[in-house]
Deep mutational scan, measured.
Amino acid sequence: TTVHIGNVTYHFDNPEEAVKWAKEMAEKLGLRIEIHGDTIRVE
């Protein structure tokens, strides 16, 4: 599972961890997340 924040990509072996981490980052940055299969974007 990959999480994209701007130009930076993070890789997670556990999809649930990826979603949890992306949600925390989105809250901190005042952004929202979009999930497309195994790709998560924070925008």
Results as ranks from 00 to 15, higher is better:
T1D: 02
T1F: 08
T1P: 05
T1G: 06
T1S: 08
T2K: 13
T2G: 03
T2Y: 11
T2F: 11
T2R: 08
T2H: 09
T2Q: 09
T2D: 07
T2E: 07
V3P: 00
V3I: 04
V3M: 01
V3Y: 01
V3F: 02
V3N: 00
V3A: 02
H4R: 07
H4A: 09
H4V: 15
H4L: 15
I5F: 07
I5R: 02
I5M: 10
G6E: 11
G6W: 09
G6Q: 12
G6L: 15
N7G: 14
N7F: 10
N7P: 06
V8G: 09
V8N: 14
V8K: 15
V8R: 14
V8M: 14
V8P: 00
V8W: 09
V8L: 13
T9E: 12
T9I: 14
T9V: 14
T9D: 08
T9Y: 08
T9S: 13
T9F: 09
Y10P: 00
Y10G: 02
Y10H: 07
Y10R: 09
Y10Q: 05
Y10W: 07
Y10K: 08
Y10V: 11
Y10N: 03
Y10S: 03
H11W: 14
H11L: 10
H11G: 05
H11E: 08
H11K: 12
F12L: 01
F12A: 01
F12E: 00
F12G: 00
F12Y: 05
F12T: 00
F12Q: 00
F12D: 00
F12V: 01
D13L: 11
D13K: 09
D13F: 09
D13E: 13
D13W: 09
D13C: 06
N14W: 06
N14Q: 08
N14E: 10
N14V: 09
P15I: 11
P15V: 12
P15N: 13
P15Y: 15
P15W: 15
P15S: 14
E16F: 11
E16G: 08
E16M: 11
E16Y: 11
E17P: 03
E17R: 07
E17Q: 10
E17N: 08
E17W: 07
E17A: 11
E17V: 11
E17G: 05
E17F: 08
A18P: 00
A18I: 01
A18W: 01
A18H: 00
A18S: 02
V19I: 15
V19M: 15
V19G: 05
V19S: 06
V19D: 03
V19A: 07
V19H: 11
K20W: 08
K20E: 12
K20G: 08
K20P: 03
K20I: 11
K20H: 10
K20D: 09
K20R: 14
W21Q: 02
W21E: 01
W21N: 01
W21H: 03
W21Y: 09
W21T: 02
W21K: 02
A22L: 02
A22Y: 01
A22F: 02
A22I: 03
A22W: 01
A22G: 04
K23P: 00
K23E: 12
K23A: 10
K23L: 14
K23M: 14
K23N: 12
E24H: 11
E24R: 08
E24D: 10
E24A: 11
E24F: 13
M25A: 06
M25T: 07
M25S: 04
M25P: 00
M25H: 05
A26V: 02
A26L: 02
A26G: 06
A26W: 03
A26M: 03
A26R: 02
A26E: 04
A26N: 02
E27V: 07
E27W: 06
E27K: 07
E27S: 07
E27I: 07
E27A: 09
E27F: 08
K28V: 09
K28A: 14
K28G: 07
K28W: 09
K28H: 10
L29G: 09
L29D: 08
L29C: 05
L29M: 11
L29H: 13
L29A: 07
L29N: 11
L29T: 06
G30F: 06
G30M: 06
G30K: 03
G30P: 03
G30W: 04
G30I: 02
G30A: 06
L31A: 14
L31F: 15
L31G: 15
R32M: 15
R32S: 15
I33V: 15
I33N: 02
E34D: 06
E34F: 11
E34K: 06
E34C: 03
E34I: 08
E34W: 08
E34Y: 13
E34Q: 06
E34S: 09
I35N: 04
I35F: 12
I35K: 05
I35Y: 13
I35W: 08
I35C: 04
H36D: 15
H36F: 14
H36V: 14
H36N: 12
H36S: 11
H36Q: 14
H36P: 01
H36E: 15
H36K: 11
H36T: 11
H36I: 15
G37R: 04
G37Y: 04
G37A: 05
G37T: 04
G37E: 06
G37C: 03
G37L: 04
G37H: 05
G37W: 03
G37K: 06
D38Y: 04
D38P: 05
D38F: 05
D38R: 03
D38I: 04
T39W: 05
T39Q: 11
T39P: 02
T39I: 12
T39D: 08
I40Q: 01
I40H: 01
I40Y: 01
I40L: 04
I40E: 01
R41H: 13
R41C: 04
R41M: 12
R41Y: 15
R41A: 05
R41S: 08
R41P: 01
V42E: 02
V42G: 02
V42N: 01
V42M: 11
V42Q: 01
V42P: 01
V42W: 01
V42D: 01
V42L: 15
E43H: 11
E43A: 08
E43Y: 15
E43M: 10
